[in-house]
């Protein structure tokens, strides 16, 4: 399969968008801005999926990630009113950022070195073990067939996992009848505001 010039241009543009969005996530102090730059990254990854002929995954990426996950995160930010700006100037642990930078640069350096030094030997596994990509059958049809034949048990377990997650979310975010605010441990932390009884009745 030959690489066309369009593929390179799309890859370069999306790489810039993805990396800029990722930097935005860790750079912005306000969680809302971080969530919005996460959207940019996820869209860039979706277009990269399209570039690699994974049309179904590109659609699922946009629907599930940007449509559900990021909206859920934004809802929690708005609901809790926790969009306070984080003070990025002070370093809570001594040397935390330096060590984190070393770890991140080490991971990136090792993988990039492996990819560039590996060359043609990088992909040496058996080709097309489970299902080969056929060009004249649509991507979603091939994935669907594979999901309901080869991976049907994994699919069932996925359904169980989603059910467990939904139940867990309901249990954890349920408002208990009496909530005792935890005492603030140090003096700098403000004591939590007491709950208003009217608000509880609305949720019940």
């Amino acid at each position: 399969m030959e690489t066309t010039a369009v593929e390179y241009v799309v890859f370069a543009l999306c790489a810039v968008i993805v990396l800029a969005g990722a930097f935005g996530v860790i750079w912005f102090r306000n969680p809302v801005q971080a969530a919005l730059s996460l959207v940019a990254t996820l869209f860039g990854v979706a277009v990269l999926f399209l570039n690699m002929n994974a049309q179904f995954l590109a659609a699922v990426q946009v629907i599930v990630y940007t449509g559900a996950i990021v909206v859920l995160i934004l809802f929690v930010i708005m609901l809790l009113g926790v969009d306070v700006e984080e003070d990025l100037e002070e370093e809570p642990l001594v040397g935390q950022r330096v060590i984190a930078l070393v770890i991140a640069a080490g991971v990136a350096g090792l993988v990039v070195a492996g990819v560039t030094l590996g060359g043609a030997d990088l992909v040496s596994g058996a080709r097309s073990v489970t299902g080969s990509i056929v060009d004249d059958v649509s991507n979603i049809e091939q994935i669907g067939r594979l999901l309901f034949t080869e991976y049907v048990f994994a699919l069932e377990i996925t359904a169980v996992l989603l059910t467990i997650a939904v139940i867990a979310a309901v249990v954890m975010s349920r408002r208990p009848s009496e909530v005792e605010p935890l005492p603030a441990e140090n003096a700098s932390m403000e004591p939590p505001e007491p709950m208003e009884p009217e608000a509880e009745e609305v949720f019940d």
């Binding site: 990722a22 860790i26 969680p31 930010i77 990136a108 993988v111």
Partner: peptide
């Protein structure tokens, strides 16, 4: 690109303190 993206995520996870971020 994926390696760099992974490292940016790991760095943010180690540095940021807001659980949502």
């Amino acid at each position: 690109l994926a390696a760099i993206l992974f490292s940016i995520g790991a760095f943010g996870l180690l540095v940021r303190r807001n659980p949502l971020v």
